[in-house]
Design a protein around this nucleic acid. Sequence first.
DNA 1: CGCCTGACCGAAT
DNA 2: TATTCGGCCAGGC
Length: 107
Amino acid sequence: MTAPRSALSPFVRRVLIAVSRVPPGRAATYGDIARIAGRPRAARAVGRIMSTAAKPGLPYHRIVAAGGRIGGYGGRIQMKIALLVAEGLTVRRGRIVKFEDVRWKGK
DNA sequence: CGCCTGACCGAAT
DNA sequence: TATTCGGCCAGGC
């Protein structure tokens, strides 16, 4: 039988794929992911996808809010920060230092 | 269908 | 720097 294709919409799948492509030590914004997934203005939907359709194994902690601000992580912000720091990033006052240097814009 | 909510964004105040 | 506000998109009711 055809693989039980997930009930996930094409957009959601593209978002999950984009997230899986963000390399360690780097980070992308919700807006970046939305753009890569083909919906430049769906940043909000992207955030909702992560909290609702989150799948294990994907580096969701590398997805942050605009300007390098941390954003959310299911209420576990501290853990998100810890994960980012463990990958070599520096977080200062809720923001990634020199975010533009580690920002992953796809490619 | 309409209304509300969010791990958002960005400009204005 | 903090707060507010309008716009944006998908999903649940």
